[in-house]
């Protein structure tokens, strides 16, 4: 890595100079510099998964997931461009029509990263035809509810349960369009696992799948995280647990 006069190595992101440390990915360096790159499956506390593709940028002219691409000195990165934002919006629209995202009845509304990212990308309509899939809710656990209708397959609960809690409560099963979140119990029910509210996995869902029961719509509309400021102005949305 070329470093002159103790100047940190840097790359260019939308015309702005972003310093980085060896080993940092593009999104990590951007986040540290306070520059927002849209993302859903990335969480700074976890190893990247690179699956949602929202954070795709053009690095030296080639599209790449900024959560998995290591920063390199002198790299020229484009992120906030019409072309990339149009593609991000299309990805969001596909996520919305593949599940059942009925925001008015969701307790996560206003604190939801999917919703806030869609606002950020000016998603005015779902564009595509809705799948309206049938995904029953798992309300078996005494304290937590799983509403699979809202799952975007980010795998954050899988990573948190496996890597932090050491429990492997969640997994993604199936392939392609049939990929879905499962619970590691013979019955398939959360109540039959050792999942607990103290788990990291209980805190990381960016959407409204893993919800604490008996909380409801605790914060009034207008006072929720993304009512107050857009997600692009919220450096670490995961810390704003709703």
């Amino acid at each position: 890595m070329s470093q002159n006069n103790n100047q940190p190595a840097s790359f260019e992101l939308d015309g702005k100079t972003i310093p980085f440390q060896a080993g940092q990915t593009i999104i990590q360096a951007a986040m540290a510099a306070g520059v927002y790159i849209p993302h859903l499956c990335f969480n700074p506390e976890f190893k990247p998964h690179g699956s949602c593709k929202l954070c795709t940028v053009k690095a030296n002219g080639r599209q790449t997931a900024s959560c998995t691409q290591q920063a390199q000195a002198g790299m020229v990165v484009e992120s906030d461009t019409k072309e990339l934002n149009d593609e991000r919006r299309a990805l969001l629209q596909m996520l919305f029509v593949e599940g059942n995202h009925f925001c008015p009845s969701c307790e996560k509304s206003g604190n939801c990263q999917l919703q806030a990212t869609a606002y950020e990308m000016d998603m005015m309509s779902p564009h595509f035809d809705h799948f309206f899939p049938d995904r029953p809710v798992d309300a078996s656990h005494a304290e937590y509810l799983l509403d699979f209708n809202r799952c975007i397959l980010c795998s954050l609960c899988v990573r948190a349960s496996r890597d932090v809690d050491g429990k492997n409560v969640f997994a993604l099963s199936g392939r392609g369009i049939k990929t879905h979140l499962i619970v590691n119990a013979r019955s398939g029910h959360l109540a039959d696992t050792d999942f607990s509210g103290a788990d990291k996995a209980a805190q990381v869902c960016p959407v409204g799948v893993i919800l604490k029961k008996r909380v409801g719509f605790a914060v009034p509309i207008g006072e929720r995280s993304f009512d107050q400021q857009p997600i692009s102005a919220t450096p670490h949305p995961m810390k704003q647990e709703g």
Binding site: H101, F102, P104, M124, S125, H130, F132, D134, R135
Partner: peptide
């Protein structure tokens, strides 16, 4: 112009779709 959740994505009435 589609106005409101129901026109835009089916909204509450579409909750019967499953």
């Amino acid at each position: 112009i589609a106005i409101g959740a129901c026109a835009v994505n089916g909204g509450l009435p579409a909750q019967r779709n499953h």
